[in-house]
């Protein structure tokens, strides 16, 4: 029973972290209507950024956010502005294959550039929370996971507040709802796109810092999170932030509990089966309309 409670707790914490990563994907889709196939590669970029801040300067991953978040925001801003927007402008109103392929190309570039420059070795940052556990009367949970879960939820909440209360947030949502109408209201739509992509990368930077005490960094480290994000974003209704959070919790629970009572392979497959099921029967998401 205690192991099952621990599995549930771990599932919820992981789910919150997955949710945070999926929120980035969902935000980009909600605003620009593109599915970013480079999402996992960008998670990996964030992880390397945090890792090297730790290994070169000795900055703790949690502290390094002060540097990593603004840098990644700018990286995202210019990536959208210089690389994605030109194709988006040309392809306006078409089926969107071109943008998918652009992000597939970006994945290949980022992943293999990492392989080339940083090697295929698994790198790990040992921080003061790595390997720390917390025993709550027999239910043991890992501290970095707990922190990731709690901070993940707080960041999602903060983002949601920002989107609903601030002028910038309203402009972002307006652009997502109707780009042309937003443009007529004096919103610079392509600049909003840049900001949205920058925000997505900033979120991934935070996620990367939360992950570093418990995950190895390597060129394909982001892949599993990308797959999870696709599943979660669709599950929660793609484009919806709160949906992504709940979707994250569901996937985290499926993963952790199935692995506990059955096997890790079964968990892995079950997630994809649920994914295809939702795609087929409720593409708007379990929580969508």
């Amino acid at each position: 029973m205690q192991t099952l409670i621990a599995a549930t707790l771990n599932g919820l914490f992981m789910g919150s972290l997955y949710g945070l990563i999926a929120v980035g994907l969902s935000l980009v889709f909600g605003v620009m209507k593109i599915i970013n196939f480079a999402h996992g590669a960008l998670v990996m970029v964030g992880m390397y950024a945090v890792f090297y801040m730790w290994s070169l300067i000795g900055l703790d991953p949690y502290l390094s956010l002060v540097v990593v978040v603004p840098v990644l925001f700018l990286f995202g801003y210019f990536l959208q502005g210089k690389v994605i927007n030109p194709v988006l402008k040309r392809e306006f109103g078409r089926n969107g294959h071109a943008v998918i392929l652009l992000t597939v190309g970006l994945t290949l570039v980022l992943q293999n550039a990492a392989l080339l420059f940083f090697g295929a070795y698994y790198k790990a940052a040992k921080t003061f929370v790595s390997g720390m556990t917390w025993d709550m009367g027999g239910v043991v949970t890992s501290v970095p996971r707990l922190i990731a879960g709690v901070v993940g939820a707080i960041v999602i909440l903060g983002l949601q507040l920002m989107l609903s209360k601030t002028d910038l947030g309203k402009a972002i949502r307006a652009t997502g709802q109707d780009r042309e109408a937003a443009g007529l209201m004096g919103i610079n739509d392509y600049k909003i796109y840049n900001i949205a992509f920058g925000l997505c990368l900033a979120i991934l930077g935070i996620a990367a810092a939360l992950m570093l005490p418990m995950y190895y960094v390597q060129p394909e480290a982001g892949k599993i999170f990308e797959m999870r994000s696709f599943v979660i974003a669709v599950l929660g209704g793609i484009g919806s932030l709160s949906g992504a959070f709940y979707g994250g919790l569901i996937v985290g629970l499926i993963e952790s509990v199935t692995a506990q009572v059955w096997s890790a392979t079964a968990a892995e497959m079950l997630i994809f089966v649920v994914f295809i099921g939702v795609l087929l029967y409720k593409p708007s998401g379990l929580l969508g309309k």
Binding site: L102, G105, T107, L108, V109, L110, Q111, N112, P219
Partner: peptide
């Protein structure tokens, strides 16, 4: 990874 890096760059250039 060099060849996949080149694939990626060519793909991005072609799409653009």
């Amino acid at each position: 990874g060099v060849h996949l890096l080149a694939y990626g760059l060519i793909l991005m250039a072609v799409v653009t």
